[in-house]
């Protein structure tokens, strides 16, 4: 059992010896770098439509890889590589902002419900159940049709506002056991108030599982963004996102399968990276793991 430090030396050692976790961390690092520096690497403006023969045939058929367009063009004559690089940023932004929002809500609901128990717990947990029971896609479609078009802010608001429930429940469970521990009893005995106990003594102890859930959560949100954009409810055109690229490529899936395979592979690899990282972090924080 650990107390205090989020990532103590033993945990760090466990993490660095976990090969899949390192691979995950590596993938995440690369994707982050691409998202940050991608726009500098992109050979073209991702939204510019090219009408020359190496981009679109006379009938409007997208062209395969060439020196000018290393991954070819899409059905609107845009550079697939440039869109992929810019799309990395959108996917990560959505993933990170939505996770931040979900953590913000879930963490506090979990802390309050777990610490105060009784009526507070009952109200907050029933509310959580309600959100959990609400059909996600229906909500998104309702929001999208109410707004006539969607923006990136809509996307991460919807994802964040519906995606915090697991976080809330896990943290609550953790807090329920933490609040009975000796160090909490001791703090209370020396006269610490509820606020101080929650912030100073309980919060640092749930940051471990929060980190794990957040990194797995990012993966989930990247996938959800892809689903939304695939349904045409995601980022507004002409903005590139991996999900939007899938959506735009689907009508040509036999003729130009690369238009869905390329963004699809990007999504799979990134999600895998975040999941491996999350697993690794969980193993590292697991006090029962005696390795190292």
């Amino acid at each position: 059992m650990y107390t205090g430090a989020v990532l103590d030396r033993r945990a760090l050692r466990r993490f660095t010896r976990n090969r899949p976790a390192l691979v995950g961390a590596g993938i995440v690092a690369i994707v982050l770098l691409l998202a940050i520096f991608g726009p500098m690497l992109a050979p073209h403006d991702p939204n510019e439509m090219h009408f020359e023969a190496d981009a679109l045939s006379a009938l409007g058929k997208p062209q395969g890889p060439s020196a000018e367009f290393p991954l070819g063009t899409d059905a609107a004559g845009r550079c697939v590589l440039s869109r992929l690089l810019y799309g990395a940023r959108v996917s990560l932004e959505v993933g990170i902002f939505a996770t931040a929002l979900a953590v913000g809500i879930g963490l506090w609901i979990g802390l309050l419900a777990g610490y105060y128990r009784k009526a507070t717990d009952a109200v907050l947990m029933r509310f959580t159940d309600m959100v959990l029971a609400f059909p996600f896609l229906l909500l998104v479609i309702t929001v999208a049709s109410m707004r006539e078009s969607s923006s990136m802010v809509d996307v991460f608001l919807v994802l964040g506002l519906t995606g915090w429930t697991t976080m809330g429940r896990v943290i609550r469970g953790k807090v329920l056991s933490l609040r009975e521990m000796e160090f909490v009893q001791a703090a209370r005995a020396v006269g610490a108030g509820n606020g101080r106990i929650i912030l100073r003594h309980i919060l640092p102890n749930v940051l471990g599982p929060t980190t794990v859930l957040a990194s797995v959560g990012i993966a989930g949100f990247i996938l959800s963004e892809a689903v939304l954009s695939y349904l045409g409810l995601g980022v507004p055109p002409p903005q590139a996102s991996w999900g939007a690229m899938l959506y735009e490529g689907q009508s040509l899936y036999t003729l130009a399968p690369r238009l869905i395979l390329i963004p699809g592979a990007a999504i799979v690899i990134t999600v895998l990276g975040f999941n491996l990282l999350g697993e690794g972090l969980r193993d590292a924080f697991d006090p029962k793991d005696k390795r190292g």
Binding site: N47, M49, A75, A76, E148, S149, G232, P236, P237, S251
Partner: peptide
Amino acid sequence: TGPDEKVEKIALSVQADMARVGVRLKIKRL
């Protein structure tokens, strides 16, 4: 109108053309 592959592609081209003369179009699909 949509979802419609052809209509959406035309909209993108119109959007790009208009951006060139300073008119910023927000595509809304009904």
